[in-house]
Design a protein around this nucleic acid. Sequence first.
DNA 1: ACTGGCTCCTGAGGGC
DNA 2: TGCCCTCAGGAGCCAG
Length: 254
Amino acid sequence: MEGQHITGVQVFEPRLRWPVDPGLAQTLTGLTVARLSRRAKYLLFETGSGALMVHLGMSGSLQLKTPPFERRRHDHVLWTLASGAVLVFHDPRRFGSVHWLPSAPGVHPLLVKLGPEPLSSAFDGAYLAAQARGRKVPVKAFLMDGAVVVGVGNIYATEALFLAGIHPRRPAGRISVARYERLAEAVKGVLAQAIEAGGTTLRDFVDGTGQPGYFQQTLRAYGRADQPCLTCGSALKGIRLAQRATVFCPRCQR
DNA sequence: ACTGGCTCCTGAGGGC
DNA sequence: TGCCCTCAGGAGCCAG
């Protein structure tokens, strides 16, 4: 994508998580993608005057295709490039979104309240402990709060808490700095491993080349309710916490 | 200031 | 074989 010139934009379905800006095609046509970057789970296609911002939600994908190809059901936005290739945004559940991010003035409202990147040095045990001070929210919901740290969804929060030996319902403000250090390390480790494996495929996830991720084969807790704990052998417990499926070991996680 | 519940949507999977 | 119901989830928003 880097260096590609956008020659056309077609929006077939603007009803995504946020309605697609009717002026998007007008704004983007004629621009060149200088570089790709990312903030939290928002993908940024930077041009000289601003950025195309895409969120994949949970079922979204982007693929570069070479015409002729048949537009599939749920192919919502197409960008035609000067090379002749077409970038396709496909999202059956429409939890994803497509935005225009002006380079000035200020930050986009969706980005302004976001916490640090989990793989950055700003994210560590001391930071988590400071953020958690006085808070009673269950630590799993705390960890999934984008204002605390970005990028930690349900699966990786479940895995990290298992690795750190922390009970998902424990109030965030009642965890020691030492245990938060362990948790921060667990988050970094789980994310690094998942990225290495190419992501986690639950149902229909595929990457930019159509390949599934393989991290699900490595999951220690998520999706393993009633199965034996890989550490102590006792049965993992499945609960619902903050409207999310949660699995933990009642013996190892306190 | 916090917290918990609701919401969008489609497809998979289970029960009958 | 096929239908119908329930559940799954990212994350912003809102009521209490």
